[in-house]
Design a protein around this nucleic acid. Structure first.
Lengths: 97, 97
DNA sequence: AATACATATGAACAGATGTTCATATGTTCA
DNA sequence: TGAACATATGAACATCTGTTCATATGTATT
């Protein structure tokens, strides 16, 4: 199982973890744990520029970690991957000792 | 459990995942899965400059993910944290679908 | 159609990051 | 002690990354 890992897999793993390696992205993902949220809502929660959030959401969407749906003017983002929850949770447990 | 997470924790989690977000570091950690290895050994396995490896090992050591021991001229590095193994394993499983 | 609101996007910029090069430190052995 | 080997370290450099600003796109409402 471990032995079957090849070079490419490890590059992909690095790409995956890149999503969690920035505090803005981690906080975005974390605030989607509870429920889906609009871009404006996320901006307000994190007290950050709407554009910055939008850029990071695109990053996370490209990585297939979040998905979105439109409802009128508003676009709601939510987690797109069961694993995300568990990986971040494991990270939280690790740093909480 | 989830609800108790504060801002600082999420910053720490980002710091933790930063260790796994670079392919050099992930490959270093991965080749320590099997057993401890010297800096030269790691350099040869990854076919990379000794200095580059040394710099990244320092990074990983500061994060307490690896430890080392000296034996004569040689310094052996090994994983310093049980969680590391599981977190990376989960990443590997994720990208392997 | 015009306005207001929500989000996306591209360019520009500053700061962070990873690698290389040269060299220093530390160890062994002759 | 001097040479050889293993590793660490600092400076320099190029590239990558995250944010901001200005503006574009898309939707609803009047």
């Amino acid at each position: 199982m471990i032995d079957k890992v090849n070079e490419n897999t490890l590059y992909d793993v690095a790409e995956l973890f890149k999503n969690f390696s920035d505090s803005t992205r981690i906080r975005i993902l974390y605030c989607l744990f509870e429920k889906e949220r609009s871009v404006t809502e996320i901006s307000e929660l994190l007290q950050m520029n709407q554009s910055a959030i939008s850029h990071q959401l695109r990053f996370l969407k490209n990585s297939k970690l979040v998905k979105n749906r439109r409802s009128g003017k508003t676009i709601y983002y939510s987690l797109d991957d069961d694993h995300v929850y568990n990986i971040i949770l494991q990270g939280i447990e690790h740093v909480s000792e």
